[in-house]
Design a protein around this nucleic acid. Structure first.
Length: 260
DNA sequence: ATGCCCGCACACTGCGGA
């Protein structure tokens, strides 16, 4: 079962880029972030025509997450638990039935947090605390589970082409990386790093200043697997080629294959 | 030192993004 995360940066602006990639890459499940659309405005047809079930959790203008799945989705839940006053659409989860295992898949769009320090950074850190709580609950369940999405976290220096440029940024501040590491240390496997030690692999290149042409990227889109899910992983790759296409997102898909 | 480029909305300018 091939499961991908993809920050599309506007699903309506990205229709061709996303459907072209779906046709080539043939993922079973896609966790989408930054759909920048309300639920009613999500263009369902191109995905349903390709055999995908579509579940959205959108809001007007910004943020918004969705799940596309060729397999039926059960027990869909929207919104990260822990703060009923949080209006931002950044979390959606569901159960996908594999041939041998049911997998709980969680799609997330973690707050950017800039400028730091400030209220936006406080919101990011508070959101990461709620994420840690949900992560603990996922580990306590028997079902293989994963949390995948745009984490807005550069875990280590080797995950940026120019780490010195990010030292005061909310994506790379020590507090941010510590909060990410706390979640990992609960027992999660960061899928890409579990399979590739080398530096120089990125999932985001800014639209500005020729970042793609210079390969000035950062790796901020991650899949975190519970031990039961990590045992099933057979592959993990970054589809960097998508960044070189026409009218691309600034992020590219990252995917895993699970023997589920 | 700052902005570069995008997408979206109370849209022809401002905001958020990273």
């Amino acid at each position: 079962m091939k499961i991908a995360t993809f920050n599309v940066n506007g699903i309506k602006a990205r229709l061709n880029a996303v459907t072209d990639w779906l046709d080539e890459s043939q993922p079973d499940v896609v966790l989408c972030q930054e759909i920048k659309s309300v639920d009613q405005g999500f263009p369902r047809e191109p995905f349903e025509d390709r055999g995908y079930n579509v579940e959205t959790h959108g809001q007007k203008g910004f943020n918004g997450v969705a799940i596309l799945s060729k397999r039926p989705l059960e027990d869909v839940r929207r919104g990260l638990p822990g703060d009923d006053s949080d209006e931002q659409a950044r979390w959606i989860e569901a159960t996908v039935m594999g041939d041998h295992h049911a997998v709980r898949v969680c799609g997330l769009y973690l707050p950017n947090g800039n400028p730091a320090p400030g209220p936006k950074y406080d919101y990011k850190l508070a959101w990461m605390q709620r994420l840690e709580a949900r992560a603990r609950d996922l580990l306590a369940d028997e079902m293989p589970a994963l949390m995948a999405g745009d984490y807005n976290v550069i875990p280590q220096a080797e995950d940026a082409a120019r780490p010195e440029a990010w030292k005061d940024d909310a994506l790379y501040l020590p507090q941010t990386r510590a909060a990410f590491r706390r979640i990992l240390n609960l027992g999660f496997t960061e899928a890409f790093r579990a399979r590739t030690e080398a530096p120089g692999y990125y999932s985001f290149w800014d639209y500005q200043a020729g970042a793609w042409e210079k390969n000035n990227g950062i790796r901020i889109d991650h899949l975190l697997l519970t031990p039961a899910a990590a045992d099933l992983m057979t592959d993990c790759q970054i589809d960097a080629f998508a960044r070189g296409r026409e009218k691309p997102s600034d992020h590219v898909p990252v995917w895993i294959d699970l023997a589920a």
